[in-house]
Amino acid sequence: MTSASSAPASSSSVSSPAASDIVLEARGITKCFGALTVLHGIDLALKAGEVVSIIGPSGSGKSTFIRCMNMLEKPDAGEILFRNRRVGEKHRGSGDLLGQGELRRHVGMVFQHFNLFPHMSVLENVIEGPVIVQRKSRAEAVEIAMDYIAKVGLAEKRDARPDQLSGGQKQRVAIARALAMQPDALLLDEVTSALDPELVGEVLGVVRDLANQGMTMVIVTHEISFAADVSDRVVFMENGRIVAQGLPETILRRPDNERLKAFLARFHG
């Protein structure tokens, strides 16, 4: 189990006005696609060092929700707060509002389909953010990047192109790319769902290490036993609502909600 005391060091330029240890918060997030409402006013607050897993059936809105958390999806109602600052509509912040670019600099995301930049090597993928967004020198960025590339076990692949890597390796590069921004929190959107079964373990291993090191994370996953293992809190979503949440033991081993029981029954067989 991780604890809030081991929050990752970060050179955050965003000061927190209150002495709250909530890093990222969603308030009343509602999202519609046309006539279909996929999220009905979701609230979720993520504390520093906390690992929250979101589980639920396909179409429950969990991916849409995690994408709202870094504004890749624009909520139709509700707001996202980063260290108590509301995130605005624009890339740059103005007044009280934090820019979406600033939010994303501090909150990394890893996608189901990796989305590595195919025209860049592994190293170039990972230094892109530090050099272009954080305006670090190339030398400094390479040093940081190599640190994380080594951490995910791909140091010898630094000059490889994404199409020369296996799915598991691609996803580990994607994690290194997100980490190279030295974010305050990481959003993982079904990061093993596109992988062959034999490659799932290596990616989960990396995520587990991050959890052990105290990285603040939201993990959308179908890997129930993994969620039970690494999470401080498990959130069960269905039909765009949070139906149950709590400690992994409670939610996954002693569920008291009928729909949650039905969902879990499908995994336990």
């Binding site: 890749l72 670019g101 994303r104 990394g108 930049f117 953010g129």
Partner: peptide, 20 residues
């Protein structure tokens, strides 16, 4: 996904267009 991956590391729309 390429647009999103660029945005997710904090790039502006123009940076995503030019670099990615």
């Amino acid at each position: 996904g390429q647009f999103e991956a660029g945005a997710a590391i904090g790039m502006s729309g123009w940076q995503v267009m030019r670099r990615i």
